[in-house]
Design a protein around this nucleic acid. Structure first.
Length: 503
RNA sequence: GGCGACGUAGCCAAGUGGUUUAAGGCGGAGGUUUGCAAAACCUUUAUUCGGCGGUUCGAAUCCGCCCGUCGCCUCCA
């Protein structure tokens, strides 16, 4: 597989030792609820991981939580709570949402506050190697000591300097030096260190975690493009200075940023769309498909319409996986070639749009073969497998709403009345078997209520099918239209009908 | 000011020198199927890739200029 490497600015074969592969992805600073940009990043690297695993690699995936820094402290102050609380809360929300989005959990999720010892040791080594210097309780990284500062983000020290807005900190030897350790101010959380009480600077935690959990050289280092400078630039030079081995990462992989309107989605601009907002409106699969229809390195603009339109595409995908109700031909649908094409698309810098084109091509082939009565079972299995590589659940995650049962019960009575009026009383026993007249619906627990509702809808569907096959169209249309008003859609096939909830 | 990316149909979005007179999805139109629908299938929807020049036997794809949009240079996935 070839992947674009930000450092060398070219596509490079993913090099691996012993079929195992280390991947570090920059995670969350949990000072507020995650936004869709976080979800996009998570899904990009989730698909990368899933595909590498599909290709036979054992991936060790580490994703950090930076649970101490300026923003954490400010957020805690503003909300009148502690850094620990706010970190705990937002981290939980994040991983719950990632679970909902079917994002695989990283194998190791280190937290900055639990790596203080490692961080201190690394800073000490950097100081011994003359890459760092202490000043009044702070420790700074000496940027000019490193030959390759700027190589990752493609900028020069002089260029950075002329770019204005450098902060004038008299403790720094050079304005571009960055802080490794910050001395304690007021009531901030702090830890004991050789330089006095303080806390880690922003970039050092990643160096510590990479080294501790994955070693001094890793295969893939990931994050959003906005992290290239200064975060990854600084992390890169300090890591290499620390370990004296380079490259720190064989691949630096950066996803394009999510935009909203004309700007990127960002906390500082305030144009955020939260993951929970989106998940309350759209299925996880549609959200995922929205991200995967564009290449991971391109910017992508969020619009509700764009995600909404993916719902239809997901239904098509799911529909191709429903069983055939007749297999009359001996011909078995062959799609081996499509699998090859899918893999070459993915091998080409994770080209998910192209891979999706192949996937939908398989959908069309299955649908065609289905109508010819060919054996589509093996092809469906392959389609399911490839869909899983992209992380689709293909579950019907439309939850039946709480009030649906009482609506359906009301409607059931209307159906009864209609049928009685028409004189076709013999049909009614089909309903009577299912409807529990004296049941107290409110007392059922969720599972039972849901099961009851499903049985009821099955029974109504069956009755409607009976009406239809007996050409009682007025009654059967009444049933179908009534269900449609409750967002329950009936679909007829040759000799059976199905219902599905589309709300 | 410095560094970088992008501009493809109504919308989203691949393709980066010839197999492409440009994938795929959404949407639209017509048809098949259906009691009518839904779903599905078939046909159709960019002679053309922001504009103008150039290189080449050949360019959406390479080069130059212009127009437009965006990112990074400050916290950010």
């Amino acid at each position: 597989m070839k992947l674009y490497d930000t450092l060398s600015r070219e596509l490079k074969e993913v090099r691996i030792n012993d079929r195992s592969l280390t991947m570090y992805v920059c995670g969350l600073t949990p000072y507020s609820e995650p936004h869709l940009g976080h979800a996009m990043k998570a899904i990009v690297f989730d698909v990368l991981r899933r595909y590498l695993e599909y290709s036979g690699f054992e991936v060790i995936h580490v994703e950090n939580i930076t649970d101490i820094d300026d923003k954490m402290i400010n957020a805690a102050d503003q909300n009148n709570t502690t850094v620990t609380e706010i970190a705990k809360e937002n981290t939980k929300i994040y991983f719950d949402q990632m679970y909902a989005l079917n994002v695989l959990k990283p194998h190791i999720i280190p937290k900055a506050t639990e790596e203080i010892e490692t961080i201190i040791n690394i800073i000490k080594t950097l100081q011994e190697k003359d890459y760092a210097y202490a000043a009044e309780g702070d420790v700074y990284f000496r940027v000019r000591k490193s030959d390759q500062y700027g190589e990752l983000s493609g900028r020069s020290l002089d260029g950075l300097k002329s770019g204005a807005r450098v902060d004038l900190n008299p403790l720094k030897e050079d304005p571009l030096d960055f802080v490794l350790w910050k001395s304690k101010k007021q009531e901030e959380p702090s830890w004991q260190s050789p330089w006095g009480e303080g806390r880690p600077g922003w970039h050092i935690e990643c160096t510590a975690m990479v080294n501790r959990y994955l070693g001094s050289q890793i295969d893939i280092h990931g994050g959003g493009q906005d992290l290239i400078f200064p975060h990854h630039e600084n992390e890169n030079v300090q890591s290499e200075a620390f370990s004296s081995s380079r490259p720190m990462s064989n691949h630096w992989v950066h996803n394009g940023l999510l935009r909203f309107g004309d700007d990127k989605m960002s906390k500082s601009i305030g144009n955020l769309v939260s993951v929970s907002d989106v998940l309350s409106q759209f299925s996880a699969d549609a959200v995922r498909l929205f991200f995967l229809t564009s290449h991971y390195r391109s910017p992508l603009t969020f619009t509700e319409e764009a995600i909404a339109s993916q719902e239809a595409a997901i239904s098509r995908l799911k529909n191709a996986l429903t069983p055939s109700n007749k297999t009359s031909s001996n011909k078995v649908l062959e799609i081996n070639q499509d699998v090859d094409l899918f893999e070459s698309a993915m091998n080409n810098d994770l080209n998910t749009p192209q891979a999706l084109a192949i996937l939908f091509g398989i959908v069309t082939k299955i649908n065609q073969a289905k109508s010819f009565g060919e054996d589509i079972v093996p092809a469906q299995e392959v389609l399911r497998k490839l869909s899983k590589v992209l992380g689709f659940t293909l579950q019907n995650d439309k939850v039946l709403p709480d009030n649906l049962l009482s609506e359906v019960l009301d409607f059931t009575n209307q159906i009864k009345a209609k049928i009685l009026d028409s004189g076709n009383t013999d049909i009614l026993h089909k309903l009577s078997d299912v409807v529990l007249d004296d049941i107290n619906v409110g007392k059922l627990d969720n599972n039972k209520r849901n099961a009851y509702l499903v049985n009821l809808l099955d029974a109504i569907t069956e009755i409607r099918n009976y009406l239809r096959t007996n050409k009682l169209y007025e009654l059967s249309d009444f049933v179908r239209d009534g269900l449609a008003e409750m967002d329950v859609v009936l679909e007829d096939s040759k000799d059976k009908s199905f219902w599905k909830y589309s709300g």
